[in-house]
């Protein structure tokens, strides 16, 4: 896919709707957390456009190693909001059986791998998955998303190096949202993140992650490169974490918000202005899309929160291919 010329109005509108639904879900989930319905949340507010662009360019067979702040990507991949909420509520329908904190998703059925809390630790796994694709000569690439904080980890270094040495089809996408909890990117690393690619012998490119067209252009160029088998590629999508790090964080302690919901530099507002200027949409339609999103999210939360918790016995399951005596004994003594 290339410049806006080849993008249909429907694609732009659908990208916009995805971003609005994701933003709305974020806001609703934070409210639900305040009411004690959901335990915790890591909001993706501000990063919707970059993530939506990634989702638009994925092929069905691509394998995604995302991180815990990827709501819009999950939604663009077609993962139903109900399944997202089941995980966050830890209810009986949660495929992870309530074992992980909210936002730590695993959706194998959708080729979305599995999220851990330790930052960057999924990146070496992505190289292994890419090796499996290469070894079996299968279609598809591996896309690994992470924040700017992850670029300081040993895992990032290991994965970048291994991906390059073994010439693997991995697209690394740094969602540089400016902050790793309280640490601004300039204190995380002195170098430009996209230029770190040079050190590993792969191309790197920075895109305006708050602009749909810039994101689509840069990512599609990178994906073409990776799909063609030339090797891995690093994209730095410059975006902004509009919310707190998590519902346990108070960003007022360390920063003044530079982008707020609906401000002129809010990526969703920027896309609205583009669509308005192209005559694709009017303010009334925008309000209607937002109203529908609120209704949708209210209804899904209301529906999913009624589902009961998994059975207590389930905490002792799925540790090994066969149960071991240790856990069986502990289960009997606790339950």
């Amino acid at each position: 896919m290339s410049p806006i010329g080849s993008l249909s109005n429907d694609q732009i509108l659908s990208a916009y709707e995805n971003a609005v639904r994701s933003r709305t879900l974020d806001i609703k989930v934070v409210n639900a957390q305040r009411q004690g319905i959901i335990g915790f949340h890591v909001p993706s507010e501000g990063q919707e456009i970059l993530q939506t662009a990634i989702g638009m360019l994925l092929h069905k067979e691509d394998i995604i190693f995302g991180y815990y702040r990827d709501f819009s990507l999950l939604m663009k991949m077609g993962i139903p909001v109900s399944k997202i909420l089941d995980q966050m509520l830890g209810n009986q329908a949660d495929i992870e059986k309530g074992r992980q904190m909210p936002d730590h998703f695993s959706f194998k059925e959708y080729n979305f791998s599995t999220i851990q809390s330790p930052v960057g630790a999924h990146l070496p796994l992505a190289t292994g998955a890419a090796y499996a694709l290469k070894y079996r000569k299968e279609e598809g690439i591996v896309v690994a998303n992470f924040g700017d904080g992850a670029t300081s980890t040993s895992d990032f270094h290991a994965a970048m190096n291994f991906a390059a040495v073994f010439n693997l089809k991995v697209l690394f996408i740094c969602e540089n949202n400016g902050w790793a909890i309280s640490l601004p990117t300039k204190k995380q690393t002195v170098a430009d993140i996209y230029r770190k690619a040079d050190a590993y012998g792969m191309p790197g490119k920075r895109v305006d992650g708050n602009d749909l067209i810039s994101s689509l252009n840069g990512i599609s160029e990178a994906m073409d490169y990776v799909r063609s088998g030339k090797g891995p590629y690093l994209i730095e999508g410059v975006t902004y974490r509009m919310g707190a790090h998590s519902t346990s964080d108070d960003p007022k302690k360390y920063r003044v918000d530079e982008i707020t919901d609906g401000s002129d530099n809010d990526p969703i507002r920027r896309l609205e202005k583009l669509m308005l200027s192209m005559g694709m949409i009017n303010e009334a339609q925008i309000s209607e899309i937002k109203r529908r999103a609120r209704e949708e999210m209210d209804a899904v939360i209301e529906e999913r929160r009624k589902i009961p918790k998994p059975e207590p016995e389930s905490i002792f399951e799925d540790l090994y291919s066969e149960p071991a005596w240790i856990q069986e004994e502990e289960k009997r003594s606790i339950l």
Partner: peptide
């Protein structure tokens, strides 16, 4: 980590 990713995806 690479070994783990391989194992998760069928090798």
């Amino acid at each position: 980590g690479m070994g783990a990713g391989m194992a998760m995806y069928g090798l």
